[in-house]
Structures are given as structure tokens and as C-alpha cells.
């Protein structure tokens, strides 16, 4: 019996889709059976980031409205047998999906997969309600910006009302270490203190992430970029391992230390 994790943020453009793609990929790298679900009906992206756009035949709305079986709509990843994607509909309206429909789909997928990663749309309307409906756990993504933290706070408030296994966990994305050091960006500790939920990972702002997602190759596949290591660390923490947080230092020495650390654990 698998576990469903929703990746949400409230605010748009903070990296939900990138995070979903990379956590999914990182979990698959560790030989877990993973299914990604894109719930952003009308503005689907996850397939693009995963490089699977050209394989879509059926989508989640087709499944909910009974035009195909769930298995038919699932797209197998081109790199891993373990990884599948249930794409969002691009043409339908958001109202086509219901919370009950989502719950059924997630419940069915949980029979088959270890982890269901649900990519949530921005906002707090029906799309959000649908995305969180079937989830057991939630991960909230924020960037170190006031507006993004404010929305994350709102989302945490809404998630706390839901009946989930544990309180949501936090990813701080797009950290620019030099700005954080100079005090121009909100400090990681301050964000964690304000939101008062557990931090599950920090991801440094890395040009490689944008390059990779344009190529349709999640960054988690690259062996040694900082963001890649960050995502793989998050996946390990999801599996229950204790992994120390990445250092914000830029110098090579620390990177080497992190590598060494990884080497020791593997």
C-alpha cells in the first residue's frame, strides 16, 4: 500500500512542478515505484518538464469521466520502468475533476505504487481541494520571498484542517546564498520559525534546473549539481533517512564534503 504526497504552495511559480518532477525522479532512482499526477487542469506542465508530452493519449479527465481505464492513461517514463505519469487535461475545464474522483484514482494507484506524487495547481480554489483530497501527506514549497511565505502560511492553515497523517513539511526553493547571507533574502530559520512546520529540504537556485527542465530531463538525474543533490536528499528524507541539510556555502570544499558524506552513506 503506497503513500500519496501532494506538492503545493499557494503561490504560482515557486517550483511545484519542478519539485514534483524531481522528487518523483529521485524516488524512482532509489527503485521505488512512483506515479506522478498532474492536477493542474488546463495548464498542464508536468509532462513537459518530464519530457513526456508527445506520449499523452488519455488524461485524468478521461479517466474520471470514464472514457478510458486508469491504466490506459498512465504514461511510462522513458528512463525508468518504475516511474509513471498521469497527465492533466489541457482542454477541459477545472470543474471536470471532483474530490471524489481524485480520491478514487489515488486509492487505485496506491495499490500498485509506493509513492503517488500529486502536483497541485496554484491557488486555493477547487483545483487545490481536488489535489489534496486523496493525499496522505503534504509538502509545501516556498521561496524566500515575503509574498510566497505568506501564501505558504495560508496553505498550511488550510492543510491543517484536512485529515492527514502528519502535519505538512516544508521545502524552501530557489535560495540564493549570497542574498541570504547579505540579509536581502529572508533567512531559512526565519521562514521555518514563522511557518512552524518541519523543514524537509532546501534547494539552491541553480541555472541547471532551468536548462534541465527545458530539455525535459529532471535535474535529479544529473550526478552532481547542487539542486540535484538537494532533491535526492529530499527523497531520502521522505523514505525516512536522516540527511543533514545542504550548506549554503558556494565553495567547492563544502560540495566535496557533501559528496563524501553521500559516499559514506551509500
Amino acid at each position: 500500500m503506497g503513500e500519496a504526497i501532494v506538492i503545493t504552495s499557494g503561490k504560482g511559480g515557486v517550483g511545484k512542478t519542478t519539485t514534483s518532477a524531481n522528487i518523483g525522479t529521485a524516488l524512482a532512482l532509489m527503485e521505488k515505484k512512483v506515479c506522478l499526477i498532474d492536477t493542474d487542469i488546463g495548464l498542464r506542465n508536468l509532462d513537459v518538464v518530464m519530457g513526456l508530452e508527445n506520449r499523452i493519449i488519455y488524461d485524468i479527465v478521461d479517466v474520471i469521466q470514464g472514457r478510458c481505464k486508469l491504466k490506459q492513461a498512465l504514461i511510462k517514463d522513458k528512463r525508468f520502468d518504475y516511474l509513471s505519469l498521469l497527465p492533466a487535461a489541457q482542454t477541459s475545464d477545472k470543474t471536470a475533476v471532483t474530490t471524489n474522483g481524485m480520491k478514487e484514482i489515488v486509492a487505485e494507484l496506491k495499490q500498485e505504487y509506493d509513492y503517488i506524487i500529486i502536483d497541485c495547481p496554484a491557488g486555493i480554489e477547487q483545483g487545490f481541494q481536488n489535489a489534496i483530497a486523496g493525499a496522505d501527506r503534504a509538502i509545501v514549497v516556498t521561496t524566500p520571498e515575503k509574498s510566497s511565505v505568506r501564501d505558504a502560511d495560508r496553505i498550511v492553515g488550510l492543510l491543517e484542517k484536512e485529515d492527514m497523517k502528519e502535519s505538512p513539511r516544508l521545502i524552501i526553493n530557489r535560495i540564493r546564498s549570497h542574498m541570504m547571507k547579505s540579509g536581502d533574502m529572508i533567512d531559512v530559520d526565519d521562514i521555518v520559525q514563522l511557518l512552524s512546520i518541519d523543514l524537509i529540504g532546501i534547494v539552491i537556485d541553480d541555472d541547471e534546473v532551468i536548462k534541465a527542465s527545458n530539455k525535459g530531463e529532471p535535474i535529479a538525474l544529473s550526478p552532481n549539481s547542487k539542486a540535484s543533490i538537494a532533491y535526492r536528499n529530499i527523497a531520502r528524507r521522505i523514505l525516512g533517512e536522516t540527511v543533514p541539510l545542504q550548506s549554503l556555502e558556494d565553495d567547492k570544499g563544502v560540495l566535496q564534503r557533501v559528496k563524501k558524506f553521500l559516499g559514506m552513506r551509500v
Binding site: R150, D151, D153, R154, G157, L158, E160, L194, S196
Partner: peptide, 24 residues
């Protein structure tokens, strides 16, 4: 914790053990 978008409205005196976040 009274988070963004939440309102805690009570009669009498309020002793809140926890934070009131921005927007709360």
C-alpha cells in the same frame, strides 16, 4: 497558530499561546 487568512474571534479575554502570523 493563527495563520494568514485565519480569524480567531472570541468573547471575553483572549490568551493565545502561539503566534499570530502576518495576514492572520
Amino acid at each position: 497558530i493563527v495563520r494568514s487568512g485565519q480569524v480567531l474571534d472570541i468573547k471575553g479575554d483572549l490568551l493565545l499561546i502561539g503566534d499570530v502570523n502576518p495576514g492572520g
